Simulated assay, not measured.
Amino acid sequence: MIIQHMAALNAKRIVLASGSPRRREILTILGLSHEVHVSSFEEDLDKATFPSPADYVRKNASMKAAAVVAELATKVVGSGERGVGDHSAVDLVIGSDTVVVVDGRILEKPRSEAAAFDMLSTLSGREHEVLSAVALFTPSLSNATSPASVLCESTKVSFAPLSSETIAAYIRTGEPMDKAGSYGIQGIGGSFVSGIAGCYYNVMGFPLHAFTKAVVGLLDAGEL
């Protein structure tokens, strides 16, 4: 487990390549000291070119983290004279991506209220899958161009039937608009969930247990 390694980890510079408040909250709950550097990756990959949704979400997570590694490498860190190509100041960069999958269709954040209504109508009264991927880069050990570890966790979520009035009222709260699949399990959207099989935090957007297991694996292997 990761708890016995927290002192050593909190002595390292750890960067979360995401502006998601849910991911930051989960890392804070864990007690992991980190900073946020929002990735500039456009998230414009063609879903049709990937063999599976899991491959797609893993690639997104990797590209988000890789963009931050590259951006941080161009900055002068502290008072030293480090320049372009120097990754030594950053020990771990964490990239993550979450999608909802139903009938093989990948649902990300809705681009409009109409899209949110369509997604929630599709999820109503049935089971769907939430996939969250995490890519870990260790640039201080020269792993700056490819991840040291990439994982993808799956959780099955069942929704109660939702009326059109319920969906419309939920959209008016604004909560769906920055959530994959147009709902947040940790918010009002949690009232729609009738069952869950797998990691709860994965549905929030960050698979906590799988992440800690991967980090311990890197520590044990001397890769972090």
Rank of each mutant, 00 (worst) to 15 (best):
K75I: 08
R82F: 01
A67E: 09
G85I: 13
D91F: 03
K64F: 05
V77D: 14
E71G: 03
G83K: 10
S62F: 05
E71W: 00
G85S: 04
V84Y: 09
D86Q: 12
L72A: 08
S62Y: 06
H87D: 11
G80I: 14
V69F: 03
A89D: 00
V69H: 04
V77Q: 14
K75A: 04
L72H: 05
S79V: 02
G83W: 06
H87C: 11
A89Y: 10
M63E: 15
V84Q: 11
S79G: 00
G78Q: 13
K75E: 08
A89I: 10
A67P: 02
S79C: 05
G78Y: 11
R82I: 06
V84L: 12
R82S: 08
G85C: 12
R82P: 00
V76D: 07
V84G: 05
K64Q: 05
V76F: 00
T74R: 08
G85E: 06
V93S: 11
T74E: 14
K75G: 03
M63L: 15
T74M: 08
V69T: 13
V77W: 15
V84K: 06
R82T: 13
G85V: 13
L92K: 09
E81M: 02
A70Y: 01
K75D: 02
S79M: 05
A65H: 04
V69Q: 07
